[in-house]
Amino acid sequence: MARFDYLEPHSLDEALGMLEKHGARARLVAGSTDFLVRWRTGVWRPEIVVCMQHVPGLDGLQFNDDDGLSIGAMVTVQDIEQNDIVRTRYPALAAGATAFAGVQVRNLATAVGNVCNASPAGDTLPALLAYDAQCRIVNSNGERWAPLTEVFVGPGQTAVGAGEIMTELRLPTPPPNSGGLYIKHSPRGAMDISAVGAASVMSLASDGTCASVRIALGAVAPTPIRAFGAEGRLIGQVPTDENIAESARLAAQSSRPIADVRSGAEYRREIAQVLTERTLRHAALTALGDVPDFDDVRRLAVQTAW
């Protein structure tokens, strides 16, 4: 429980100035849900903590057809879980949000914080990858945009540089006739870290073939990953059980899981295949149909409820 100084900037410029001044001695926090755990156990020992809570303009969660979904840096996971547009247009993200920890943690934790913490097991991350999220990163020179796939560098490591702040995620509008789902595999139904997570988002062409698909996996590699090979197997194909199974097999093949206190590596690979298959089936099934009831999505998103 090391001591630290706590700073509350009231503008983005002030926050950037603080980061510039204190450099590696400072740590930026939003909801602090990851920070408090690591600080209390001594893993993180910053001398300065810069809290983004009072920086205005970062709590917007907005959607329009042209720009897609914009998620500000202070938007909580609960904001996302409760949002009707997210539930209808980005169902895999809503599923990722509902599978995330528990209500108390979701009320504090932010999606951007989940990205910046870069845990391979972060529950919003596979869905954000599957919706092709772009990240807005500001620094003293201005801003830059980076695709989320390029932001994850390693466990806990991102391409967000020293003196930079991620302020927004933007998810393009999904094509028409699309469906998606995230499924989390964990021994417990809530307040648990994923042993494996999988998100699939698929859109269908008028002839019933797969027009686009993105598959992303969590907790089976040093970072959340896209399963590009598995996606390629489905594009232009009718998503039959056989094609989906083959795609899921390829997705599992692309994983590089480790063994830890939660799970063995081989089991993780097997589960990655099962979850990919289940999310793809659900995506294909719902692409043309009605938006499923969110209580059903809740049940599907957490594996123990199957």
Partner: peptide
């Protein structure tokens, strides 16, 4: 002890 916390030592919750 490899899992000295309630985040890694998993007691059932009401949902389970």
């Amino acid at each position: 002890v490899r899992n000295p916390s309630f985040a890694s030592y998993l007691m059932p919750l009401a949902i389970d």
